[in-house]
Amino acid sequence: MNNGHIINIEGLIKRFPVGSGFFTALDGIDLSFGKGEFAGLVGPSGSGKTTLLNIIGSLDSPSEGKATVMGQSVGELSHKKAADLRNHNLGFIFQTYNLLPVYTVFENVEFPLLLLKMDKVKRKKAVMDALDWVGLTDKVKSRPKQLSGGESQRGAIARAMVKRPQIVLADEPTANLDSENSHHILQTMEKLNQDLEATFIFATHDDKVIQYLKRKISLADGKVINDELTPNRT
């Protein structure tokens, strides 16, 4: 972890094949994140926020340049190593929740811990703790389709947080929530950020989220156009 940074991005370029040519979604990104940051990628639709989060999350690899996460260069990782990195250190919160429809809330949150082969007693406690953080302990037996949008989003947050990952990547976590739910969830994440010292990186264009950020990175056309600390929230 270079200079105490948990994530280091240098000269990152991401091109997607489109027709016979390429579309450059990320165009020379240099960024680094330290432990415990509460940062957001902000910018209009199509500016490359999701693409960048996916690369940090080792779901995608750079076309050029380098992205190092927890000391590992994501473009050069084997599938197994990348899975390992996600399994142990990363928590994803998707814009569309992506709760597994056939599982109950409890089972969804338990899933990452099963992959970590945590023993049963510890697992149960960790799941209940995580559901407690997001205020969803009364829905353990519900299935995703029985949940409201806010509840689903909170379930997804609990699933991302349950293993206490070093890094949480949250893509438009409030896109489908009303204002009250948005604030509730953001406060929950803020608290988890402080309690667990996890690094949070958001992708958003929602002003409600932006208010909570301690660092705001503005993207446009795949380039970082502004990177500022917002100390008023500290």
Binding site: A83, R86, F92, F94, N98, L100, F111
Partner: peptide, 11 residues
Amino acid sequence: THIALGMTRGQ
């Protein structure tokens, strides 16, 4: 989603 949550392809 399984993969994003840390499952390997093999799994």
